[in-house]
């Protein structure tokens, strides 16, 4: 129910969905300009570049997950609601993932093409992005919950959350690189999956606690 509410909210503000994608596209377009259009060079940095941009666009949007609800008082009502806060938080973050991470994973083949990533790695890129961005949304939620009470939480949330994004970046990039070089990608995706399980189990708990603290202050 909450998931549906959040998704319809997002759909009525298409700019908020479009912005991260446009951000993604523009930064991807900057790489050939900055590094030079030599296709081997681009292909070499492509896995890392795409993952770092995904990370940043997830970071930019995670600040807004609870922001508007905090501003209009819906968050207070959410905390008082009879349903477990864990599930509510999970629904919020799931909606956030669908409109940012999942969408990004779906359009990532286009960006892979722009950076000349070998075609055989595109499938892995999509799967690893879908798994990885879900972890990013869940971890980002913790930072969002802790900083929602602050007027300018944007910079603080980066400092809090970016270190926690590193493992996802390492294994996400490694999976794509393995696919490029023809090595098995299974172990890396399994590790991402393990991180996701851990994040689903523990992330909403931390987020719920963060929200309670932010509302209390």
């Amino acid at each position: 129910m909450l998931l549906r509410r959040q998704l319809s909210l997002a759909i009525r503000r298409p700019i908020e969905i479009g912005n991260p994608l446009v951000f993604f596209a523009i930064v991807v377009a900057l790489f050939p300009l900055g590094i030079g259009p030599a296709s081997e060079q681009l292909a070499m940095i492509a896995p890392g570049a795409i993952w770092i941009i995904a990370l940043l666009s997830s970071l930019l949007t995670s600040d807004s997950v609870f922001r508007s609800d905090f501003d209009d008082g819906s968050l207070e009502q959410l905390l008082l609601a009879p349903q477990p806060l864990y599930l509510s938080v999970l629904a919020y973050l799931c909606a956030h993932w669908v409109v940012t991470g999942l969408l990004l994973a779906l359009v990532s083949p286009v960006f892979a093409l722009m950076l000349n990533l070998p075609a055989e790695a595109v499938g892995t890129l999509m799967v690893s992005l879908a798994l990885g961005t879900a972890v990013l949304s869940l971890v980002g939620g913790i930072g969002a919950a802790l900083t929602v009470g602050l007027k300018r939480g944007g910079m603080l949330i980066s400092l809090l959350i970016l270190p926690l994004y590193i493992p996802v970046l390492i294994f996400g990039t490694a999976a794509v690189q393995a696919a490029v070089s023809g090595a098995p990608v299974g172990p890396f995706l399994a590790l991402l999956g393990a991180m996701l399980s851990l994040a689903i189990a523990l992330g909403p708990l931390a987020t719920a606690a963060g929200l309670r603290i932010s509302i209390d202050a």
Binding site: R4, S74, Q77, A81, P82
Partner: peptide, 8 residues
């Protein structure tokens, strides 16, 4: 109907 406290 979609109020955060209550649910449908």
């Amino acid at each position: 109907s979609w109020h955060v406290s209550g649910g449908c």
